[in-house]
Design a protein around this nucleic acid. Sequence first.
DNA 1: GAGGCTTTCAAGCGATCAATTGAACGAGCA
DNA 2: TGCTCGTTCAATTGATCGCTTGAAAGCCTC
Lengths: 223, 223
Amino acid sequence: MSGFKQDINDQFARLGKALSNGRRLELLEYLAQSERSVEQLARVSGLSVANTSQHLQQMRQAGLVSARREGKHILYSLAGEDVVQLLGVLRTVAERRLAEVREMVAKVLTARDSLEPVQAAELLERSRLGLVSVLDVRPPEEFEAGHLPGALNLTLAELERHLDRLPPDREVIAYCRGPYCVLSFEAVARLRAHGFQARRLEQGYPEWKLAGLPTQTGDAPRD
Amino acid sequence: MSGFKQDINDQFARLGKALSNGRRLELLEYLAQSERSVEQLARVSGLSVANTSQHLQQMRQAGLVSARREGKHILYSLAGEDVVQLLGVLRTVAERRLAEVREMVAKVLTARDSLEPVQAAELLERSRLGLVSVLDVRPPEEFEAGHLPGALNLTLAELERHLDRLPPDREVIAYCRGPYCVLSFEAVARLRAHGFQARRLEQGYPEWKLAGLPTQTGDAPRD
DNA sequence: GAGGCTTTCAAGCGATCAATTGAACGAGCA
DNA sequence: TGCTCGTTCAATTGATCGCTTGAAAGCCTC
């Protein structure tokens, strides 16, 4: 009976343990975009397949991710949207309480993006009025699994070859995987170098979806 | 530049690591009630003083707690209310995703409290109408640092000697440190054994305060 | 200042963790 | 039935964790 307190806290600690490794948090961010096979996750994260598999199993035992088989692949995905929320709160507390995080963010921000990022509500409003173009800088697989309505999908590698797809007189709002994903920082920097007005969306796609805002799925015209 | 992703996730993982031990989570729950000295925390948690100190320093480096000196004691407290929120989300996800947690909770619940717990809004309303007595089952130190308005403070040890302080015709709503604190479960069980109508408040004091609901500080008449 | 608290440090123990390597599993397909 | 290929297991390495023990460090009070 008195052991209940210890036991239940040990259970909660299982979740903490699953969140106690930077590589696992990175995998969670990828999974927040779309479900992925072990191999895909290993490739995008730069980890070995065996190592990736072990991390995924650890998180599965902690209830953060789930897996299903499709053909010869096993597809992992987040166990639910509450995991996105947990990640969000973790990052919020980290940014507020850890000076190192604030410094790292400030360094990236001042180096590349002196302007305030755009909030979701502001983007919705200005997008409705046709004042902005929305740019998704993630890889096509993640884009196809879900993206902001009307967004154009261009990776960093493609961006400068297809600037003509962006109306030159409209501000561009770029987003990617999350609030700390560097892709949108880099995209904004490059767009500005080419004379565009460009800003970042503060949140990434998973947070947008978590907030219940409208999304689209399916691929976009590519070349 | 490309190391940013790794670095920032490693920073977030520092928080996860701080949350990866059941004893630390227990300490955080105590700190959510009121600031405490190392010695007090060691006593209430059953850990050695040295061990407690080490856990606290670990959490301080992770930005979860802060410390100040008062006289010959060093008082630790939560770094902010966002830590309470983080704990809340962690527990919510754990209860939703870990079968073990659900089982443990169900066992305690069915063994002692078959009724649904009371929500904060319901308590506020019924308390305003004078329909219920509010009972705080935490130790006096925690009660004095902050409690629900109009609450009576009786520990489990005192409860049965002072049943006369509770109007016999009003339902009693008991609360303690948090949603998984056993004190209020036990209090409800004992009150019912004495013929009272009694239920638990679903949340504990820290969650009540985090929600911005009214609180009181200061001690109560004791004997 | 000296003594007496509380707290922290430092060393050491067994246990666990992250990552590598190579082998084993197992579902799909010929 | 075999073969293939994605995934997992098993064993290993070095590093870190949790806790204990005993000593050191601060700081208050006298």
